[in-house]
Design a protein around this nucleic acid. Structure first.
Length: 453
RNA sequence: GAGGUUGUAGCUCAGUUGGUUAGAGCGUCUGAUUGUGGUUCAGAAGGUCGUGGGUUCGAGACCCAUCAUCCUCCCCA
């Protein structure tokens, strides 16, 4: 059979992996710098842990795992019945008890809910693992991709929001990617919904204004009208999304628009707190209020974040926000959470397009020992071991071959030095060391070899 | 879930209105070179033209189906 990959998945070869690891390492270091601790959870969760947490669209995109043993004759009838009910869109526990995780936030919530008795709060964890979605792949969209999340559970302090924004700014600064860190607050959107006929309209209104970038103001108004907003209410929405200017100017305008709405004012004050504390001048990438930012996930209740790369056509490369009742989904009340996520695969695509990966991350083996024969090979073996013990990565060519071939191997693997030891060198206790970048070659004593890299 | 794109050598792609034995570049391997690469030269290997039907004297090309791919919308990282 002809081997192929499942749709939306990829193999990662050495050069790609070094670049990816550079991103992972940058993110990990920054997370650690802010006191987050690592956590890993299983690739699979109970299907019911995940179902219903991401909306109807999300449920459809969850990869379900077929139960084992369905072919057992004793279970034949019940399996058949369960398949029937799956076909009718009903429960599926008899068929799929487990599913692949869809994001890292719900598994985190599950973990906190299970362990809240042991954890000391605020609990700050980071997690960098793949997630799976049964989406149709396209640019920047994969069926298996990595997320890097940092979340805080058990604290409502706005210090966390500010630090999370700082983490975004720091990481993208280090990666040399210009981004816009967009921030908004669900309480403000809530207040807007109140002015437009009730809080239950928030999701609908936010989904409409979230499309502003793509479809324009007229289409948004059209959509609002078909959703049952009257003219006055549409006008309110319009005046809301036409708020513009600097962050300070936006806040002033918001304050006058929502002067009567306690929750709205609370949201505005939260924004103000974060923006005031954030050291804007330290970073290239701006932290800006984006009132059209809504984010689909319905568990967000306060601050929401989104990160967009500048100068590249790509969906958001990071997102997050505050959820006041995350573990409530698992019957543990009163634990607030806030977190952010990095989309590593999209960040990779952006960096590749902008060509901003540093050259230095592609260093692999430092020196290749040419293989000049069976006797020499034995002699070289211990020399290579000494180098490795000194922390210098070394390879011995696997067989005695023409130099031409051995040179080409070194070239292909980007190995900067080759070391040649034949009978002459063994006699002299030396080594012919050649720098492939400039072609310079010198004879050095074997004992001195490790000081030449 | 809806719409579109493209499937020809390991890779990137040519292949005219259907016409004899399907090509190129790169890569791979061998040699020119018995201890010095990147250049050059000579040669070789490598293809059920995505798959299955159909139209035709004749299909890589046309038609249908199917699979895969990439992209757009929806939604998202």
């Amino acid at each position: 059979m002809k081997p192929t990959l499942p749709q939306g998945t990829r193999d990662f070869s050495a050069a790609i992996l070094r670049k990816r690891n550079f991103i992972f390492q940058t993110i990990r270091d920054t997370f650690e710098l802010y006191g987050f601790e690592p956590l890993e959870t299983p690739a699979m969760e109970h299907t019911e842990t995940l179902m219903g947490k991401y909306g109807d669209e999300g449920d459809k995109l969850i990869f379900k795992i077929l139960n084992n043993g369905l072919d057992n004759p004793a279970k034949h009838d019940s399996a058949k019945n369960d398949f029937e009910s799956v076909l009718n869109g009903k429960t599926m526990k008899g068929i799929t008890e487990r599913a692949l995780r869809y994001d890292l936030t719900i598994p985190f919530a599950r973990y906190v809910a299970m362990n809240h008795g042991q954890l000391s709060f605020p609990f700050k964890r980071y997690q960098m693992q793949p997630v799976w979605r049964a989406d149709r792949p396209q640019k920047g969209r994969y069926r298996e991709f990595y997320q890097c999340d940092a979340d805080i559970a058990g604290s409502t302090s706005l210090l966390h929001e500010t630090e999370l924004a700082l983490i975004y700014a720091t990481v993208f600064q280090q990666l040399n990617v210009s981004v816009e860190i967009r921030i908004n607050n669900r309480k403000i959107l809530n207040a807007l919904a109140n002015l437009c006929g009730g809080a239950d309209r928030m999701m609908m209104i936010t989904i409409a204004i979230d499309k502003l970038d793509k479809i324009g103001i007229d289409k948004v108004k059209e959509e609002l009208a078909t959703r049952g907003l009257n003219e006055d209410q549409i006008k309110t929405v319009e005046s809301f999304i036409s708020i513009s200017g600097t962050n300070e100017e936006k806040i002033t305008q918001l304050q006058s628009l929502f002067s009567e709405d306690a929750i709205g004012l609370e949201g505005i004050n939260e924004l103000k707190f974060i923006l005031d504390l954030f050291p804007h001048s330290t970073f290239h990438s701006p932290l800006i209020i984006d009132l059209s930012l809504a984010r689909g996930l319905n568990y967000y209740t306060g601050t929401i974040f989104e990160v967009k790369a500048i100068g590249v056509q790509m969906g958001s490369i990071g997102g997050g926000g505050r959820y006041d009742d995350l573990t409530g989904l698992f019957d543990v009340k009163g634990i607030a959470g806030v977190g952010i996520s990095f989309g590593v695969d999209r960040i990779y695509d952006v960096m590749e397009e902008l060509n901003v990966f540093p050259e230095s991350i592609q260093k692999g083996t430092t020196v290749l020992f040419f293989n000049t024969g069976a006797e020499e090979q034995k002699y070289i073996f211990s020399i290579a071991q000494n180098l490795r013990a000194a922390g210098i990565s070394a390879e011995i060519f696997h067989e005695s071959a023409k130099f031409d071939k051995q040179f080409k191997y070194a070239e292909k693997k980007n190995i900067p030095f080759v070391a040649i030891i034949g009978s002459k060198e063994i006699e002299n206790g030396t080594c012919m060391l050649k720098n492939l970048a400039n072609g310079e070659q010198k004879e050095v004593a074997v004992a001195e070899l490790k000081n030449n890299f």
